[in-house]
């Protein structure tokens, strides 16, 4: 130990860059920290043996994982069966399935107005509608874009980056960009008035607001799915197309009988990933419309957020019950993915 610290104190070699000294300092700090850990772990290893060191390596990750993922999952189930306004579970009274009874207390499930907890059912139907249009549009647009990027084009890398760039923007930023465009005096209404129309309140009409919420979310995320589909397309061996050309396939046939079947697994991944994400839609919409106008763009996660954290009188038990319902929907979607994914592997 003493020897090595002496050798560390030797004058450093000639430095020609300032960054060099800094990075040396940084790495020697890291080095010191790591040496310190070695100081603890080496006797430990001698005591418990090499194999059990694996548990030590797992410990920090599993500790956080257990406290902040596994335990909350179990707590959520118990919590959904408690009532009252207190926060901590030990202060709350056990009410059994009362919260679920409240959630599912409906005269007619198709009409949210007849439900006890009508906001939940509005959120359910809004989310279902959002999922259908957003996922449908997303798969279509990203498939077309991926097919086009897969053609022999110049500057593929550039165009790929262009479509991908919005994926990196935060949902808050995306929402503010579009809020600025869609406001009453915004630039979109310049085009509308230039064509002789009246200014349209894009985000104040329930249907238009839903339309824009779907569109903005496709705009923001399509680059991600395009990228995955493009990778899928590029993994199709070109020999197949050459063989098809020899057999005299036209463009549609080679798409229908070569591209589509071979792209199916990737397409399926994209479908399920975008489904799972669409069910959890929250932040963009929260900033863009706040769930409005009225409850037109109120989705499930925002319902849970409002019920548990934003409302004057929080009903956290109800929120926990609603998130269990949402969690089971996500679970079913995932199981379908696993089942079908295995089936397509076998086929």
């Amino acid at each position: 130990m003493i020897q090595s610290s002496e050798s560390d104190n030797l004058p450093p070699p000639i430095k020609n860059r300032r960054g060099h000294a800094l990075s040396r300092l940084g790495s020697s700090i890291v080095d010191m920290i790591m040496r310190f850990f070695d100081f603890i772990f080496e006797p430990l290893q001698n005591a418990i043996g090499i194999k059990r060191m694996a548990y030590i390596f797992l410990l920090p990750n599993m500790l956080i994982f257990g406290i902040f993922v596994l335990f909350p999952m179990l707590l959520n189930i118990y919590y959904s069966m408690t009532g009252g306004t207190k926060l901590f579970p030990q202060d709350r009274q056990f009410v059994g399935l009362e919260n679920f009874r409240v959630l599912f207390d409906c005269q007619n499930y198709l009409q949210p107005g007849t439900c006890n907890e009508d906001l939940f059912w509005r959120a359910v139907y809004n989310t279902a509608g959002f999922v259908v249009f957003q996922v449908g549009g997303m798969v279509l647009v990203s498939l077309i874009t991926a097919l086009i990027l897969n053609r022999e084009i110049r500057g593929r890398g550039f165009f790929r980056s262009v479509f991908f760039y919005p994926v990196l923007l935060s949902p808050v930023v995306v929402a503010l960009i579009w809020k600025w465009i869609l406001q009453r005096e915004g630039v979109l209404n310049v085009f509308v008035t230039a064509m002789g129309g009246d200014k349209v309140p894009w985000l104040l009409d329930p249907r238009l607001a839903t339309f824009w919420v779907v569109l903005v979310s496709i705009w923001a995320l399509m680059g991600f799915y395009t990228l995955i589909l493009l990778a899928g397309l590029q993994s199709i061996p070109p020999e197949l197309y050459e063989a098809g050309a020899i057999d005299g396939t036209d463009r549609w046939q080679s798409f229908r009988y070569i591209t589509l079947p071979l792209l199916m697994p990737t397409l399926f991944v994209v479908l399920v990933l975008s489904l799972i994400r669409a069910v959890q839609v929250f932040d963009q919409v929260f900033v863009l419309t706040g769930g409005g106008p009225g409850t037109a763009t109120l989705y499930l996660v925002q319902y849970i957020y409002n019920t548990a954290f934003a409302n004057q009188i929080p009903q956290r038990g109800l929120a926990a019950a609603a998130s269990l319902v949402m969690g089971s929907v996500l679970l079913v979607l995932t199981l379908i993915q696993l089942r079908l994914g295995r089936a397509s592997e076998v086929a």
């Binding site: 993922v69 909350p72 954290f309 996500l330």
Partner: peptide
Amino acid sequence: ATLLIPISVILVPVFIVITE
């Protein structure tokens, strides 16, 4: 398995843990 559990499903209990 927990790859599939987004934080939006366990907001309330994680908040309780954090508060505790």
